[in-house]
Computed example of a mutant assay.
Amino acid sequence: MPRASAADAAETARRILETATAHFAEHGYASCSVDDLARAAGVTRGAVYHHYASKPGLFAAVATRQQESVAEAIVAATRDSTPQAALREGSHAYLDGITGRTAARVLLIDGPSVLGWEEWRRLDAEGPERELRSGLREAGAPPALLDALTAALSGAMNELALWLAVRPDDAEARRQAHGALDALLDTAVSRS
């Protein structure tokens, strides 16, 4: 039997990842089996294991892609902005990006328990948290408080995202969350 080309293999891996992303977002990690994911992707169970080694490995790939997507939204929202505007625009882009149904479920609900706390924190530190720290520094946050402010704002934004995740169609809740975020940001950089 001929081996699949590199392009075919990449397409299979992509299809598995997209299918897993949709299933994890819709049903949660615990409710998805590798057999279900393989069947939905139109591949064998062996193909899933070949590309991702395990169900937790597949979830880690999904979570990594979701973190990258949120970080990309932050960067796109802050391009060509002043430091103060970039901090605000990037923080709002984070809140909007992570409250999409997929990102919230994968990153905030299932992520810490499936990935483990240390891995979950590493993913956040390499993506959105890195952008937040940079934004705070450039906007003039006090250097002595930079680590604490980053942790506090990151935690607050994650809590706002979880609060919004259970209110997906509530425009007033979204307005309130963005207003609360503005108030937090104003306080964070007003001490400089």
Rank of each mutant, 00 (worst) to 15 (best):
P2Q: 10
R3M: 13
A4Y: 14
A7E: 15
D8K: 04
A9H: 09
A9G: 11
T12M: 06
R14N: 15
I16L: 11
L17H: 12
E18Q: 15
H23V: 00
Y29E: 04
Y29Q: 04
V34C: 08
D35Q: 14
D35G: 13
D36E: 15
D36W: 07
A40S: 13
A41K: 02
G42N: 12
T44H: 09
R45N: 08
R45T: 09
R45Q: 12
G46W: 01
H50L: 15
A53F: 05
S54A: 13
L58N: 04
L58E: 05
L58W: 04
F59W: 05
A61D: 11
A61H: 07
R65F: 04
E68C: 03
A71Y: 10
E72C: 00
E72T: 12
I74F: 11
I74D: 02
A77P: 07
A77T: 03
T78G: 15
D80Y: 01
T82R: 01
Q84K: 11
A85S: 14
A85D: 15
A86I: 02
R88Y: 00
G90W: 02
S91A: 15
H92I: 10
Y94W: 15
D96C: 07
D96E: 12
G97Q: 06
G97V: 06
T102K: 07
T102A: 09
V106L: 02
V106S: 03
V106T: 02
L108P: 04
L108W: 07
I109N: 04
D110P: 08
V114Q: 05
G116E: 00
E118L: 12
E118G: 06
W120F: 10
A125P: 01
E126P: 01
E126K: 14
G127N: 15
P128H: 14
E129R: 10
R130L: 12
S134L: 13
R137P: 00
R137A: 10
A139T: 02
G140Q: 09
A141T: 15
P142H: 13
P142E: 14
P143N: 09
P143S: 07
P143G: 05
L145D: 15
L145N: 06
A148T: 09
L149S: 10
T150P: 07
T150D: 09
T150E: 08
A152S: 12
L153P: 00
L153A: 03
L153S: 01
G155Q: 14
A156M: 01
M157Y: 01
M157C: 11
M157Q: 14
N158C: 10
L160R: 00
A161S: 12
A161F: 05
L162I: 00
W163A: 13
L164W: 03
R167A: 05
A171I: 00
E172L: 11
R174K: 14
R175N: 01
A177N: 03
H178Q: 08
G179P: 02
A180D: 05
L181D: 08
D182W: 04
L184R: 01
L185F: 04
D186K: 07
T187A: 12
R191E: 05
